[in-house]
C-alpha cells in the first residue's frame, strides 16, 4: 500500500516537473470541443443534441493522447524493469501508475467538462450528469487504455496502433456516458446508464491491472 502511494507521488512529481505534457492534452480537449460548433453551425438546438457526444468523444481522444507515454518513459530508462524485479507486486505499482495517470489527465477533463458544456447550451442538470458520468468513465478509460499502452510498449507506430487497439474497447463507455446525458435531456431516467458505467469500472478495477501486468512482463522479456 505504501508502495502504491509512492508510485502515485512519484508520477505526480514527474508530471509537475513536466507540466507542459499534461496541459497539452487538456488544451487539446478544449480545442477539439470548440471545433465542433465551428464545423456544424451555431444552432443551439443542434448543439444541445450533440453536446454530450462531442464532449465524450473529445475526452476519449485526449485520454488517448497521453496514453502512449504512460509506460514508455519507464520502459525506456529501465524503471519498468526495476518495478518488475521489485519485491512489491507489479500489479500494485501498475495500479498506482494508472491512478496517477488519471489524476493528471482524467480529473482535469472532468473538472473542465461543465464549462465546455455551457458552450453547447446544456441545461444545468445535464451538466451535472455529464460531469458525474465523466468522473466514473475517465478512470475506466485510463484502465482500458493502460492495457493498450502496455501491449504496444516499444513498438513501431506505437501511437496509431494504440488508438486502433483501444478505441473499439472504449465504445461501451462512450455509449453509456453520453447516453446518460442524452436520456436526461430527453426526459428519461439516466440512472441505469451510470450504474452500468460504474459496473464496468468495478470490473476493470479487478481485471485491468492483471492484463496490464501480463502485458508488461511480455514486453520486458
Amino acid at each position: 500500500m505504501n508502495a502504491l502511494l509512492a508510485v502515485i507521488r512519484r508520477d505526480l512529481l514527474l508530471a509537475l516537473r513536466r507540466k507542459s505534457e499534461a496541459l497539452t492534452a487538456l488544451f487539446f480537449f478544449v480545442i477539439v470541443v470548440s471545433l465542433f460548433p465551428l464545423g456544424i453551425g451555431p444552432d443551439p438546438n443542434l448543439l444541445r443534441k450533440i453536446g454530450p457526444g462531442v464532449l465524450w468523444v473529445a475526452a476519449l481522444l485526449s485520454t488517448l493522447l497521453g496514453l502512449n507515454r504512460l509506460f514508455a518513459d519507464d520502459f525506456a530508462d529501465g524503471t519498468l524493469e526495476q518495478m518488475a524485479v521489485s519485491p512489491t507486486p507489479l500489479g500494485w505499482l501498475v495500479a498506482g501508475k494508472i491512478l496517477a495517470h488519471w489524476l493528471v489527465s482524467g480529473l482535469p477533463l472532468v473538472l473542465l467538462a461543465p464549462m465546455l458544456g455551457l458552450q453547447f447550451d446544456l441545461p444545468v442538470d445535464a451538466l451535472g450528469l455529464l460531469t458525474l458520468g465523466l468522473l466514473i468513465g475517465t478512470p475506466l478509460l485510463s484502465m482500458i487504455g493502460a492495457i493498450g499502452a502496455a501491449l504496444t510498449l516499444g513498438l513501431r507506430g506505437g501511437g496509431a496502433l494504440l488508438s486502433l487497439i483501444v478505441l473499439p474497447l472504449y465504445v461501451p463507455a462512450l455509449i453509456f456516458g453520453a447516453g446518460a446525458v442524452e436520456a436526461q435531456i430527453a426526459g428519461l431516467q439516466a440512472g441505469g446508464h451510470l450504474s452500468l458505467l460504474a459496473a464496468m469500472l468495478a470490473l476493470s478495477v479487478f481485471f485491468a491491472p492483471l492484463a496490464v501486468t501480463a502485458a508488461i512482463r511480455i514486453a520486458l522479456e
Binding site: 512519484r10 514527474l14 530508462d77 529501465g78 524503471t79 524493469e81 526495476q82
Partner: peptide, 9 residues
Amino acid sequence: GHHAALKED
C-alpha cells in the same frame, strides 16, 4: 541492469 533507471527530472 544496463539502464540507469533514473528519472532525468
